[in-house]
Amino acid sequence: MTVRPPVRPRSGLRRWSVRHARLLEWLYEHFETILLRGLRPLWNALRGTRAEKGVIVVEQGVKGLLFDCRMCGSCVLIATGMSCPMTCLKGLRNGPCGGVRADGSCELDAEQPCAWVLAWDGNQRMRRNERIAGLQAPLDHSRRGTSSWLNKAAEWADDGSH
């Protein structure tokens, strides 16, 4: 028998988030429309100021608690069933590798559920569950540690969309 390592406190909420993917999807869509897009000029004014750090701390706190967020700076939770793909030990953002164990655990750590098995579960609970089929571009590693929320607001400002 192998000794079970202590379960990280965050992992419980990670599964809760996947089970409540539909609620979180609804919350995020409103958050995106009202706060992120509506207050876009404010967010973009914050970039590069000391207040940016505050946004990062809040984002890290909230998403760390709910998703075990790794602050990649290019959040795709809305397309991954609210299971963070950066918690995959290979950091795969386009789906599971071929090594997932028969019981749905990770090939590299049998104690962990595969992040993509969770993602598929969460995705099936979401309203817009076609987003998981979209291709994710290679991760921009220069964004690590920055705020995804601010990055999104900046992208909208760049392409002038509303």
């Binding site: 386009n94 789906g95 599971p96 164990r101 028969a102 098995v117 089929a133």
Partner: peptide, 17 residues
């Protein structure tokens, strides 16, 4: 491709991707 690993329902979609 690995048609034999979980999540099995997702595997054909992954091929399409």
């Amino acid at each position: 491709i690995n048609p034999f690993a979980p999540p099995v329902d997702y595997r054909p979609l992954r091929l399409a991707k």
